[in-house]
Amino acid sequence: MKDVFIPMTSIASGLGQEAADDLYCLPIQIVNISFVGRPDHWVLVDAGMPGSADDILAAARERFGSDARPKAVILTHGHFDHVGALVDLVRHWDVPVYAHEQELPYLTGRADYPEPDGSVEGGLLAKIAPIYPNQGIDLGDHVQSLPADGSVPELPDWKWIHTPGHTPGHVSFFREQDRCLIAGDAFITVRQDSLFKVLAQTEEISGPPRYLTPDWPAAWDSVKRLAALRPEVAVTGHGLPAAGESLAAGLDKLAREFDRTAIPDYGRFV
Rank of each mutant, 00 (worst) to 15 (best):
S52Q: 08
G51K: 05
W160D: 07
G14D: 05
A242R: 01
P133W: 10
L247Y: 09
H79M: 09
W220E: 13
F173I: 01
D252T: 14
D46E: 12
G14E: 06
P156C: 01
Y266H: 15
P50W: 04
D221H: 13
E62S: 15
V198P: 04
V233A: 03
F64W: 12
V233N: 06
G37I: 01
I56D: 02
W42M: 06
P133M: 10
E232W: 00
I263W: 03
A126Y: 09
R110K: 15
L23T: 14
S194Y: 08
V152L: 12
W93E: 12
L212C: 12
I11G: 10
G48P: 07
S222Y: 05
P153V: 08
V233G: 02
A200T: 13
K224Y: 02
V97M: 07
H238D: 04
P209A: 08
Y113R: 05
V73Y: 08
D55H: 11
I30W: 00
I74W: 03
R61E: 14
S145W: 06
V4K: 08
T236D: 04
A219T: 09
L146H: 07
G14K: 04
H92G: 00
L247F: 10
A228H: 10
P27N: 01
R63E: 10
A111D: 08
T167A: 06
A183C: 03
W93I: 13
G250M: 03
Q201M: 14
T9N: 05
E204A: 13
A243F: 11
A186W: 02
P27T: 01
E62R: 15
L226P: 05
L251D: 09
P264W: 03
R69F: 04
L23M: 14
L26R: 05
P147K: 05
D21R: 13
G16T: 07
S119F: 11
H79C: 04
P130T: 09
H238P: 02
L89N: 10
D22W: 02
G136S: 06
L23I: 15
F64T: 01
C180W: 15
A19S: 12
R179W: 01
G237Q: 06
T163G: 03
I131D: 00
H238Y: 01
P105V: 02
G140K: 09
L195W: 11
F35L: 11
Y113W: 12
A219L: 07
A218D: 10
A249T: 14
C180M: 15
P50E: 06
S246H: 12
A72R: 06
I263L: 13
P105M: 03
G207K: 01
N32T: 02
E245F: 00
D252Q: 14
L104N: 03
K2C: 01
V270S: 04
Q17A: 14
V235K: 03
D265R: 15
H238C: 05
D94C: 11
P147M: 05
K2F: 09
F80N: 05
Y24R: 11
V171D: 05
I28L: 14
T213A: 09
S13M: 06
